[in-house]
Design a protein around this nucleic acid. Sequence first.
RNA 1: GGCAGGUUGUCCGAGCGGCCAAUGGAAGCGGACUGUAAAUCCGUCGCGAAAGCUACAGAGGUUCGAAUCCUCUACCUGCCA
Length: 429
Amino acid sequence: MEGRAVNNVLDDLEWRGLVAHSTDRDALRAALDEGSVRFYVGFDPTAPSLHMGNLVQIVTARRLQLAGHTPYALVGGATGMIGDPKESGERALNSLDTVKAWVERVRRQIEPFLAFDGPHAATMVNNYDWTAPLSTIDFLREIGKHFPVNRMLARDVVRSRLDAGISYTEFSYVLLQSMDFLTLYRDHGVTLQFGGSDQWGNLTGGVELIRRADGGRAHAFATPLVTKADGTKYGKTEGGALWLDPTMMSPYAFYQFWLNVEDEKVGELLRIFTFLDRARIEELEALTTDKPWMRAGQKALADEVTTFVHGAAETERIKAASAALFGAGELHDLSPDTLGAALREAGSITVPADSSSSVVDLFVETGLSKSRGEARRTVAEGGAYLNNERVTDPEAQVGREDFIAGSWLVLRRGKKNFAGVELSRSMSG
RNA sequence: GGCAGGUUGUCCGAGCGGCCAAUGGAAGCGGACUGUAAAUCCGUCGCGAAAGCUACAGAGGUUCGAAUCCUCUACCUGCCA
């Protein structure tokens, strides 16, 4: 990554809508203008993979690094064992082994997105390293003393939990995260932290601790929560959340998610998640408004974000696959190689040449349907397709003649869920 | 430690001995309309072709019959200490 300086990075972040809250804006701007600011963003290991919400932080960290600032990426080996309070109720503690395993996964997942060499090289830190050795007495004397309980009780999350109950463990979370900021401030000169808007209380907790404990000046800002046009959460797609891990969500499905984003959200998501410049994004927004059916914004968004997360080569394969499967043309007109490549991206299985299967079984085997009953239901509802032709008979069997070019079967559930079945070569000769 | 309440399907949440595979929302899924969009309307939503099987925190028990009653265990919560 080249260390080119981007002027007014704060203006850019604000234009992109990435600053939902911040501490004194003028002071933050002055700090960012003055030179390379060391900043940090934390990721708690609450799942085996990062997801779309974390991606907001990742791209934001990268933008700051590209602008010449110096990132510290923190994995929450300690905080992940405590659990950030959330409004819906107390979290179940994860086992130590689970947290350790997830810390490693999260760490490896973050690494490709930041530059760990060059003039503003990133540093990876784990708050377990300074939290675990700390004695309770030191913690209470040096950290706890700076936190007025009345102030802590006034926080929205805590207040919302006072009836339902909140454990001391979760109540204390803000102290740990604040201590992280203080530690990085002291040991590495870190003066800026950002995080999701739900972290605002934890962010300001750190700023305040630095001021109270050391009389230091630090800054913080919060990125917005990204929601659907109707205000509900994203990520209720088939597999649940929108995972970055390719084994938890295939890159093809990841690309399809972005491609299917609502028109109203395209501009916002382009600004938040892509590195396209302002002129280009405004052009795409105008195109989306004027000719929404072209889906220019969605295509650019899916292309950019998938390339960022899964790489250019994979994205090219996905785009070719999407074009083949969603194209207006006849499946039979595609070359077997093109068709095969497309179906492998979408998901496919191989069956022996001498097997005979029902359509329902194949729907289950390819994962298009979770159970045979569900597959039969899909057929009954008119949502099952074999080689783009609707299947109406729940007992339908497939034969050798159904395989396109003697090798591939195209299954589809609904309008956009494809899977391939390849006839094994070894048996068919 | 004492007393009281809770744990239901993906989530929320009814049910309080048979009519319960379990009301109702939401999410999800399919269809129609479209642009692989949104909104809307319709359908669907444990497994099984069916018989039936497995499910209402876990383990036992009472009963012809239990999500519903009893006992123990685990976890969550409130009040008191």
